[in-house]
Amino acid sequence: MFKILKYSFFDLMRSRWSYVYFLFYLLLGFVLLFLNNDVSKAIITLLNIIIVIVPLIGTIFGIMYYYNSREFTELLLAQPLKRTTIFLGQYIGLSVSLSLSLLLGLGIPFLVYGLFESSEIWNFASLIIVGVFLTFIFVALAMNIALSNENRIKGFGYAILVWLFMAVIYDGLFLISLMLFNDYPLDKFSLIISMFNPIDLSRILILLKLDISALLGYTGALFNKFFGTNWGMFISFFVLSCWIVIPAWIIVYKSMRKDF
């Protein structure tokens, strides 16, 4: 599997889009830092961007990479390789290269600005960790969609729809439900609902880490009580891991049954 991973990784590292993605983060990092002039404020702004952009890029790259590397995949399928090896190798290769673009693109400006001297290093680290999680999650979801749709346009459409649902529509529905059931105790409900959307979960994790949860009022206090503890952290990361493992497992399952 390592060989496939390596090939996918280097294949992507040489493609123009990885650089575009890297340069985008580089630029974003520098601009935010020099406009805000404050690491912690920059991190908050960055959070809002990362939580939306990372899943979007993961989705688009995941779907494009699968469709573009179909020839490569077919070539590999005729070689003495397990299907699991081929598909997981490609999945991990893609996710790692995107994560690296994120890490380097944001890491460099923050290092230049003096991240290590500031107390924000852990907040920055958790931002990157969440970004990496989101990359792995959305690449896996996109590859699942690509595997089930031969038609590229359809696949692309579905993938964007999934991203839109998770990033925007889900929150809308969530808010509507909170308004509708205003008379009932909703703490547990909202806690559970936020678990089912990796974007929401990531946002909450970072917000609580940044100690601005006081702004969130009562719900924030409740969330803090839950997520602030080690147990809450553990549960959240466990759920995020499930968001990676389950789609990745479905990739394997689907690829075993697909014709090429």
């Binding site: 020839e71 070539l75 005729a78 390789l81």
Partner: peptide
Amino acid sequence: NKWDYRKNINYLPQIANFPNNL
């Protein structure tokens, strides 16, 4: 569900589709 038997097979596909940026 086996894969290692392909060690003994060479295959020439009908349409020579290769990864383009190699």
